[in-house]
Write a protein that binds this DNA or RNA. Structure first.
Length: 513
DNA sequence: AAAAAAG
């Protein structure tokens, strides 16, 4: 372990770092700061939560001349939220040295940014689209940039920014220092590194920090229409302090957050169609614990560093396993433990296996709690918060009323009544969540086909005839490989028997509610 | 097929 004071950092920066509560450098910080202060180019392989921002932020701030009016550092980040987060942390690191940081990103009035740019910031943090926009408007002068940093480079690749990145990098003087951070190193990123970097030092942190070892991973096999009720029960049993629920689409997120609010949870949604102001306010409320549950699309899956997230729920299993790793990585951070629960419909079980192959870890099946268990969870919660109020002597002047009650009733009855009034009974308020189009059944190396549309709806519809919605019966293109393998069809499982209580034979009576 | 990011 290295202490920051051993890293040749200037007094002013050290002071800021101390104020932020940092004492010892994390592995990525130790490795990066040492080489970066020597002016070396660096490839850092690490995810957020490892102290990455300070790893490049400290040497960047060290290099800034606060008396110069020029932009000396440029940082490119994949999402707006990440750009904001990075600029906030850089501001703290550079506070004592009076380094001026400016973030530029889409969704914010560009005139305001242009005015702010005239205020001679030293460091720009931005998203690719808006940075390019400013370059084209000639409102962003990059000819004095000495340090260029790519944060989450592989994410920017995934999001299709690779061309933008190339263009931006070409607009920065070649005799600069370049730091590139990426969790993985796919070929296009490697190419960028070869093209734009000078004999970079590679700083890789041990795989231990990059995996998900302190996260307990569960899955719940559940049909689409049962998901929400099971989710509420699981939440009531888990009693998460801070939870993120991921949904697959923006619409899904809207409906879920609305439904949760109806049932009395403090939940808000966040996705890319909301105004930037709304996105920021939701995130801030979540960080300040004003809401307990953040419902999100993958906009919140990557990079965001929100401390204290105890549970992650994947209401829909993510398509690609990488997304899964990013999502559950929002919990179990900074050495704390976390819980991740993933809902998976029977026909999506193939995706689950793929995820498990990627993480090299099996998920444990989670039995959906009964409504009784959910209630007990709520009651426990009431007991805890009552006890906490007593412990903290947070009783105000209710003692007189308590005495009054005790003249008439048994103490135990009074307390029981108080507990009951604090308990949220499982609500049966109806909520509506649209059925999500199921993920396409995983195709196994089918060679042929390739006609547009990919015949998505190839479900395991028994051919029960009945005008399945919207006609257009394209039953002709039944794939060549209708496999019979482990389909659950008759679901011989018999555990979690409570789910199908009424034992209704699943005949053709679809859609009757 | 969805989401992110420039409007």
């Amino acid at each position: 372990m290295t202490n920051f004071s051993e890293l040749n950092i200037s007094e002013s920066t050290l002071k800021s770092v101390k104020r932020m509560g940092f004492e010892e450098a994390t592995p990525i910080q130790e490795g990066t700061i040492k080489f970066a202060m020597e002016g070396r180019d660096i490839i850092g392989q690490a995810q957020t939560g490892t102290g990455k921002t300070a790893a490049f932020g400290i040497p960047l701030v060290e290099k800034i001349d606060p008396k110069s009016p020029n932009i000396q550092g440029l940082i490119i980040a994949p999402t707006r939220e990440l750009a904001i987060q990075v600029s906030e942390e850089l501001y703290k690191i550079g506070q004592d040295k009076r380094v001026k940081i400016l973030s530029v990103y889409g969704g914010q009035e560009i005139g305001r940014q242009i005015r702010a740019l005239k205020n001679n910031p030293h460091v720009i943090v931005g998203t690719p689209g808006r940075i390019l926009d400013h370059i084209n408007r000639r409102t962003l002068k990059l000819e004095n940039v000495q340090t260029l940093i790519l944060d989450e480079a592989d994410e920017m690749l995934n999001m299709g920014f690779i061309e933008d990145i190339n263009t931006i990098m070409e607009s920065v003087p070649p005799e600069r220092q370049t730091l590139l951070f990426s969790a993985t190193m796919p070929t296009p990123i490697r190419k960028i590194a070869e093209k734009f970097m000078k004999t970079p030092e590679v700083v890789k942190i041990q795989s231990k920090e990059m995996t998900v070892e302190n996260i307990e991973q569960f899955f719940v096999k559940s049909h689409e229409r049962e998901k929400f009720d099971i989710l509420s029960r699981v939440i009531n049993v888990h009693q998460p302090e801070l939870a993120i629920i991921f949904g697959r689409t923006k619409r899904r997120v809207d409906e879920l957050s609305h439904a949760l609010s109806i049932r009395g949870y403090l939940a808000e949604g966040i996705h890319g169609d909301l105004s930037q102001a709304k996105r920021m306010s939701v995130l801030r409320q979540f960080k300040e614990n004003k809401i307990d549950i953040l419902v999100a699309t993958d906009v919140a899956a990557r990079g965001l560093d929100i401390s204290g997230v105890t549970h992650v729920y994947n209401y829909d299993i993510p398509q690609d396993p990488e997304s899964y790793v990013h999502r559950i990585g929002r919990t179990g951070r900074a050495g704390k433990s976390g819980v991740a629960v993933t809902f998976v419909t029977p026909r999506e079980m193939g995706y689950l296996r793929i995820v498990e192959e990627t993480t090299k870890k099996r998920m444990s099946p989670l039995r959906p709690p009964s409504s009784d268990e959910a209630l007990i969870g709520q009651q426990r919660l009431a007991v805890e918060s009552l006890a906490e109020m007593v412990d903290k002597n947070n009783i105000g002047d209710y003692r007189a009323f308590a005495t009054e009650l005790l003249e008439k009733y048994e103490a135990v009855d009074v307390i029981a009544a108080a507990l009951k009034s604090m308990t949220r009974e499982p609500s049966d308020t109806p909520v509506s969540i649209s059925e999500e189009r199921p993920l396409p059944a995983r195709k196994e190396r089918s060679g042929g086909g390739g006609r547009s549309g990919g015949g998505g709806y190839k479900g395991n519809n028994r051919s029960s005839g009945g005008r399945s919605s919207s006609g257009s019966g394209r039953s002709s293109d039944r794939g060549p490989s209708r496999r019979t393998g482990g389909r659950d069809g008759s679901s011989s499982s018999s555990r979690e028997g409570s789910a199908s209580r009424g034992g209704r034979p699943r005949t053709s009576s679809r859609r009757e509610n």
